[in-house]
Every structure is written in structure tokens, then in C-alpha cells.
Computed example of a mutant assay.
Amino acid sequence: MDEKKQFAKRLRAAMIAAGHEPRPSVLEKHFNARYWGRSVTYQAVRRWLLGLSIPAQEKLQVLADWLHVEPQVLRYGLTGGTRQAAKSMGIRAPHWDSIAATDQALIQAYLSLPEATRQHLRAFIAALR
């Protein structure tokens, strides 16, 4: 799958994890409310969600802040240090793309939490086993 399609998949998953429907109208409204530059069009955000284009870095930062994910995770997925963090959580999937989008979004949301909150969640999950 190409880079733009992978980005779109991560963007949709992050929107779902943040409690938003992955629709262009939703993305356009929330993005433009936070972006300090020229507003983006419905067509532009639709292209992001369809995997036809990737936003510029300053727009990617706004998306990441809004969706509570690291910009590099949104842009590139789990690689390097973020992959190590996933392994430390017990995730043994060598191919991130083989994980369902909703699970990817959950993991990304978890990784964006403060360490103290992650510790509480780990203890809670351990108690459920």
C-alpha cells in the first residue's frame, strides 16, 4: 500500500480513536477551527482521508495536536522509538499494517497519554487478565 493510503488509514483511525467520525466535513470543521493559516477546503481534507495527498508539516502538527497523537506516528506510523514503545507494551506484531485500524488508533491514543496514566492503564489491564 502506498504512503498516502497508509497516512489516510492512520488519520481515519486517529479520528475514530478521538471520538470523531472520519468524514471530510468533520475534519474540515475541526481543522479550520484550530489552524492559524488559510482555511483548508472540503476537497483538500477529503483528499487526505482518501489517501490522495498528505498535508504539509504545519498542518500535520495541527492534526496531531487535535487528535492527541504524535505527529511522526500520524505521518509515518509506528517506527523506531514508537515501535520500541509498542514492544514494551507487549505488542508483538512485526507488521503494524496487519493490525486493525481501530486497534492502531487505540494504541496511538495510549502512546500519547502521560506516563502516569499509562501505568494506571497497564495495571488495570493486568487485573482484567
Rank of each mutant, 00 (worst) to 15 (best):
R83Y: 04
Q57F: 05
S39L: 11
P22H: 10
G90D: 08
T79S: 13
E58Q: 05
A44M: 09
A126V: 03
Q119R: 13
K29E: 15
T79C: 06
Y35Q: 00
A13H: 10
P22E: 07
V45W: 05
M89A: 14
S88N: 08
K5N: 02
Y42P: 04
D97P: 00
A86T: 06
R34K: 05
Y76P: 01
L111R: 04
Q43Y: 13
L63P: 00
R129C: 01
R122E: 13
G51Q: 12
M1Q: 12
L52D: 13
P22M: 08
L52K: 09
P114R: 12
Y42L: 10
R23Q: 14
T41K: 13
L60Q: 03
R129D: 08
M89R: 05
T82L: 08
V62R: 04
E3I: 02
R75N: 03
A116R: 13
S53Y: 02
A85F: 03
I16H: 12
S53C: 07
Q84T: 13
L106D: 00
W66H: 09
F124T: 06
R129F: 02
R75K: 09
W36Q: 08
L74A: 05
I54C: 01
A116E: 15
E58G: 00
R75C: 01
V69Q: 04
W66Q: 01
R12P: 07
I16V: 15
A93Y: 13
S112A: 15
L128Q: 14
E58L: 00
A44P: 01
Q6W: 12
E115R: 13
A126E: 15
P55A: 02
T117K: 14
Q119Y: 09
H68I: 01
